[in-house]
């Protein structure tokens, strides 16, 4: 599908750009419309496990809703306390509700953009593209890749240390001491493995020089520009709509 096949660097930069623009805005409508469109675009143009996507989206949604309630509940004294909205039997100042909605949808807009990238991008291709298009030094890129591979290994290791400590009868100590007892074997093992991995990579002729060929050549094709163009257009249209209906405002540091 288009999103999976497009150049990862272009995708990442587009998303970063969109995030920066969204961060400057503060109104409920723009991020809401944008969030919905991003989800639709992700589903239309991406291939991924839909169930996983929803599972990931769920905590973000809960987080956003939690933010909604707390912002309303702990809001400052509003300027127009008389102007209220009835929310399921709860009288809420209209101003507070708008601030809360804006904040929550903003979070969701960031989250859906991040999910779009996560679910349609292969980590290896992303790093390859960073090397090939954005001139990231291979030494750093392959170093990161090697470290990233450790993630599943660390998870198993963590479980094993946990079990091993149980047998030793751990438990009466302070939390910080326990963290330390955990961290040292975990990190020591990881560092030793990292060092070995580095030696193994060099033993396969890796020098870190930029002079290398790539089994997978990632280039920027014409159709890769569709994504940034389309997304800017989308944001433009949504901005136009929210200005048109009088919701639009710049971000002024609301919390």
């Amino acid at each position: 599908m288009y999103l999976n096949e497009m150049n990862p660097s272009v995708k990442a930069l587009t998303i970063l750009g969109l995030v920066l623009v969204l961060a400057l805005l503060f109104d409920p409508i723009t991020p809401l419309l944008f969030t919905v469109s991003v989800i639709i675009i992700t589903f239309l143009f991406g291939t991924f496990r839909k169930k996983h996507y929803l599972l990931y989206l769920l905590p973000f949604t809960i987080f956003a809703f939690g933010m909604l309630w707390t912002t309303i509940a702990f809001a400052d004294v509003p300027k127009n306390p008389g102007d209220t909205v009835n929310l399921i039997g709860w009288e809420v100042p209209r101003e507070d509700l708008l601030v809360a909605l804006s904040l929550s949808f903003r979070v969701l807009a960031f989250a859906t953009l991040s999910l779009l990238f996560m679910f349609t991008t292969n980590m290896v291709e992303f790093l390859l593209s960073l090397m090939q298009q954005l001139r990231l030094p291979p030494k750093l890129a392959y170093g990161i890749l090697a470290g990233y591979r450790f993630l599943p290994m660390l998870k198993t290791e963590f479980g094993q240390i946990q079990a091993a400590h149980r047998v030793r009868g751990l438990g009466q100590e302070s939390r910080w001491k326990r963290y330390r007892r955990f961290a040292v074997p975990l990190l020591a093992g990881a560092i030793r493995k990292a060092e070995r991995t580095a030696v193994a990579m060099e033993s396969k002729g890796f020098t870190g020089s930029r002079e290398r060929t790539f089994y997978r050549n990632l280039s920027i094709r014409k159709k890769d520009w569709l994504f940034p163009a389309g997304m800017s257009l989308l944001l433009g249209v949504i901005l136009f709509l929210s200005i048109h209906f009088g919701y639009f405002s710049w971000y002024q540091g609301q919390l």
């Binding site: 030494k139 990161i144 090697a146 470290g147 450790f150 975990l186 493995k193 990292a194 060092e195 580095a198």
Partner: peptide
Amino acid sequence: MKNWKLKEIVVMSVLSVVFAVV
């Protein structure tokens, strides 16, 4: 990046991965 050894980079990257989880 020239004066970095590969093992230093890999170790840094592993530390980053661990602490990302933390």
